[in-house]
C-alpha cells in the first residue's frame, strides 16, 4: 500500500531533483575531461573534428532561420506594445533604448536558447535515446570507445558555440524588428533609432548576454544528452525522454536566467 502525504511527495521530489542535478554534474565533469582526448590528443581526434563540425551544422545552421524570425517578431511586438505607454510620457524615442537593452541582455540569448531547445535539444535526446534503445551506445562501450567522448563532447561543444553565434544573430534581428515597426508605423527615423540603440547598449550588456548564451547552450545540450543516453523502455521511452528534455530545459533555463539576472543586479552590472 502506498500512501502519499505532502511530506513524502516533497521529499521524493527533492531527491529526484538532486539526483538529476548530480548526474548532470557528473556528465559535465566527464565531458570536460574528454574534450582533450576527443580533439587534441589521442586517436579520437581523427574523427573528433569532423564530428564536431557535423554537429555544429546540424545544431546551428538549420535553426538560424527560425530564431531570426521569432526574435524579429518579438522586437516588433515589443515596440508596438510599448508605444502607447511611452507616448503618455512623450518618451517614444526611448523605444530603441529599451528594445536594445532588453534584446542584448535578456531576450536575444533566452529566446534563442528556448528555440534551440525545441530544435536541437529534442533532436539530440531522440537521437541518443534511439541509439541507447538499439544497443548502439553499448556497442560503442564494448569496443572501448567512450560514448561521452564520441557522442557527448561534439554535441555539447557544438551547441555551446552555436548558441553564442545564434545569440548574436538574435540580438541583431530583435533590434531590426523594433526598427522595422518604429520606422514604418511609429514614424521614428531609422537613423535616430539606431543611434539610440548604440548609445544605450554597452559592451558589457552584449558580452554578458553572450556569456549567458554559452551557459544556456551547455546546459541544454547536457540535459538532452543525459536524458537521451539514459532512456529505458524502448520507443516509448524515447518519446518520454524527448518531452522531458524540452520541459526540464525550459525550467532550467528560466532558473539559470533568474540567477544571472539577480547576480548582475546585485553586482550593479
Amino acid at each position: 500500500m502506498r500512501r502519499f502525504s505532502p511530506v513524502t511527495v516533497l521529499g521524493s521530489f527533492s531527491v529526484a531533483v538532486i539526483e538529476f542535478l548530480g548526474s548532470l554534474g557528473l556528465l559535465l565533469k566527464e565531458t570536460s575531461l574528454m574534450i582533450q582526448p576527443a580533439l587534441f590528443t589521442g586517436r579520437g581526434k581523427r574523427l573528433g573534428w569532423r564530428n564536431l563540425w557535423f554537429q555544429m551544422v546540424r545544431v546551428g545552421v538549420k535553426s538560424i532561420g527560425i530564431v531570426s524570425l521569432v526574435v524579429f517578431c518579438i522586437g516588433a511586438i515589443l515596440s508596438l506594445q510599448m508605444e502607447p505607454i511611452l507616448r503618455q510620457y512623450s518618451a517614444t524615442d526611448k523605444i530603441a533604448d529599451i528594445i536594445g537593452v532588453a534584446m542584448f541582455r535578456e531576450l536575444g540569448p533566452l529566446v534563442a536558447a528556448i528555440t534551440l531547445t525545441g530544435f536541437a535539444g529534442a533532436s539530440i535526446a531522440a537521437e541518443l535515446g534511439t541509439m541507447q534503445v538499439s544497443e548502439e551506445i553499448e556497442a560503442l562501450e564494448s569496443q572501448a570507445i567512450s560514448p561521452v567522448r564520441f557522442l557527448v563532447v561534439p554535441r555539447v561543444l557544438a551547441t555551446t558555440v552555436m548558441m553564442v553565434c545564434l545569440a548574436i544573430v538574435a540580438d541583431l534581428m530583435g533590434v531590426l524588428g523594433g526598427l522595422f515597426v518604429s520606422t514604418s508605423i511609429l514614424g521614428i527615423s531609422a537613423e535616430s533609432y539606431l543611434r539610440a540603440t548604440f548609445s544605450a547598449v554597452e559592451m558589457k550588456d552584449f558580452l554578458g548576454g553572450l556569456f549567458k548564451a554559452a551557459v544556456f547552450g551547455c546546459v541544454l545540450s547536457l540535459i538532452a544528452c543525459h536524458l537521451g543516453m539514459t532512456v529505458k523502455g524502448g520507443a516509448e521511452g524515447v518519446g518520454t525522454a524527448t518531452t522531458k528534455t524540452v520541459v526540464y530545459t525550459i525550467v532550467a533555463l528560466t532558473f539559470i536566467d533568474l540567477g544571472f539576472t539577480a547576480t548582475f543586479y546585485y553586482l550593479g552590472l
Partner: peptide, 27 residues
C-alpha cells in the same frame, strides 16, 4: 560482440561501421 539487434551505428555506412574501431584504436 555481436548484439541481439546487430547494434550497427545507423548514421554510418557498413564500411564506416567496420572502420570505426580501427580509426579509433590504431594509427
Amino acid at each position: 560482440v555481436l548484439f541481439q539487434s546487430g547494434a550497427l551505428y545507423n548514421s554510418m555506412t557498413i564500411a564506416d561501421n567496420v572502420a570505426l574501431p580501427l580509426r579509433e584504436h590504431t594509427d
